[in-house]
Simulated scan of single mutants.
Amino acid sequence: MPTGPPFAMPADYAQSLNGGGVDLSGTQPADGVLRSPFMQLKLKRTRVTDRLEPLEHEHLRVSDEDTANRALVAAPGHRLVVAQLDTGPQSMNGSWSKDPMMEGGTDKAEVRLVVGDRRQLLTPRPTIGTIFLVSAADGVPVRLELTDQGITQQMDLRTGATVHAGSAVLYHGDINRPSVGYAGTGTVTRGGATVQVNVKISAGRMVFEAWAPGVGWAKPGRAWLILGVTATSDGFDGYTKGGTLGVFFDIQNSSTYTLVLPGGQQIRARAGKDSTTTFGGTYSSATPVMFDVPDSLRTATLHIAPSGTVEAVQRDVRYPSNWAKAPAAQDFPIDLG
């Protein structure tokens, strides 16, 4: 197919383009990652050139003018900076993107394309495979800025080099499934009747991060270890079936969950929204149980000793009560790898 004359790019051109279906050639940056609580920007390719051939930009809407079958050439004294974000399905997700424990957190991440002293807020935000095409004179900074939860980080689009801010835990945090499955039995006695209460506690998700909804950034040298806990008890089941005594049990996180570090230091769970046991059913939404821990933590022991509010129910009246025999404590290993 014949080609037309080269298209001279405007000297101040700076745009983010839909890169769907495009895989530009270029250098894989050694760094090239910005990560925040709600977003991640991961650079796949970067390139600085004087010219883009027609086949390299044929799927990009570069200009309202007809650039089909025409090479794109840099303005005099300028070069074209071309950078593409990763195309992986999870490449844009931050730690709290679509997280079931995100209560209290709002995704307000902002991305800006910066060329020299010009700063352009990108709305909508970049997506998977977004291509940045910029005309810039040598020496003029060309970078992305990611601002989230009051912290701004930067990425050089020429090289992928980054300037990180905030806690380093952002870049070595962890999300996994711990092996926590507590099962214990307690008893409550009132008015000559005794009820056996089976308590089950599981943690289906564990997050080790620098920022968390509701509490914000961890202090320097610290991090948040968060367990998504589900708790059930069956002390009310017999009462609903005609029994004379029922038991409600609501767990208090700060007295139930203790993290024991390798050196023996004990850290109680942060007081806040407590775990709530349910009766005769499955609790589908995990309650976050949070610990303020050293950011160097890799292993610990989770000590579970069920404690909280115990209420006896007789003739549909609730009475404050206590365990006649409390559920026994149990320990579980925590390994962040």
Rank of each mutant, 00 (worst) to 15 (best):
T3Y: 12
P10V: 00
S16L: 08
G20P: 00
V22N: 09
Q28P: 00
D31N: 13
G32S: 05
L34I: 09
M39D: 11
V48M: 01
L52Q: 08
E56P: 08
E58F: 15
S63T: 08
A68I: 11
R70W: 11
R70L: 02
V82M: 11
V82N: 07
V82P: 01
N93A: 13
S95T: 15
W96F: 07
S97P: 09
D99P: 06
P100A: 09
P100K: 14
M101E: 10
E103R: 15
T106V: 13
R112A: 15
D117L: 06
F132A: 11
V134G: 04
T147D: 03
M155P: 05
L157Q: 01
G160W: 02
G166T: 08
A168L: 10
Y171P: 00
H172D: 11
S179K: 14
Y182D: 00
Y182C: 01
V188G: 00
T189P: 07
R190E: 01
T194K: 03
N198S: 13
A223V: 07
W224V: 01
T230H: 06
F236E: 02
D237I: 08
L245W: 00
V260L: 02
L261W: 07
G263F: 02
Q266Y: 07
A271W: 10
G272H: 09
S275D: 15
T277P: 02
G281S: 12
Y283Q: 12
T287C: 03
P288C: 11
V289G: 08
D292Y: 15
P294G: 05
R298N: 12
T301V: 13
I304R: 09
P306C: 13
S307L: 06
G308P: 04
T309S: 14
A312I: 05
V313S: 04
Q314Y: 08
R315I: 04
N322D: 07
K325S: 13
A328S: 09
D331E: 09
D335A: 05
G337C: 05
